[in-house]
Amino acid sequence: MGQGLPLAIVAALLATLAVTGARRAAWIALAALVLVAGVLEFPDDGHYPAGLLLRLAALWGATLIVLPTGLFDFAALRRDLSPRVIAETLSEHPVVAASALAGLLLGAVPLALPIETSVAPVRAAGIALLVIGLPPLLTSGYVEATGRAAVVALTGALLLRASVLGALDPLAAVAIAAGLAAILLISSSVAGQITLSEEE
């Protein structure tokens, strides 16, 4: 299992923060989640991990474009990312935190299905991200938060897929990287347009 399980736990924590955190913490968590999930999804098999680099470039690039102003204000970042604030955020959203934990356990414990012939930590992270991301994706009325939830849920689906079928083929990797970046860019643009029209 090696580093897989700690990475899966970190991925679940970051995903929880990405869908529940305040704006600044959520974006930072999403950017970190992309890296952790990418490391889990693209195993180091001696090849140049082009798919991982592509995913990181696309999603970090999109995140940089849509970042709210003042995101890198050091004092604010320190405050938002302090363990106390993170713990408070998690305690304010117990259902999401419990879903993350349940997802990790559900993914890690074999249930005698053929798809469980897979990499357990990757599967656990995938299921955790799916159960964290899908509810806000289906129900949230906040466009930007829905965009982040969509990225979390899709990343979970891709992790679950990778745990059974391995890494994506190159064309799918390009399409998925572009698509995830498009979700972030478009949700931010849509949120901006709705705000603009409401102000008018």
Binding site: P43, T117, V119, G166
Partner: peptide
């Protein structure tokens, strides 16, 4: 059938 995963559990 799916290809065997790199690190099967």
């Amino acid at each position: 059938a799916p290809a065997p995963a790199p690190n099967e559990t």
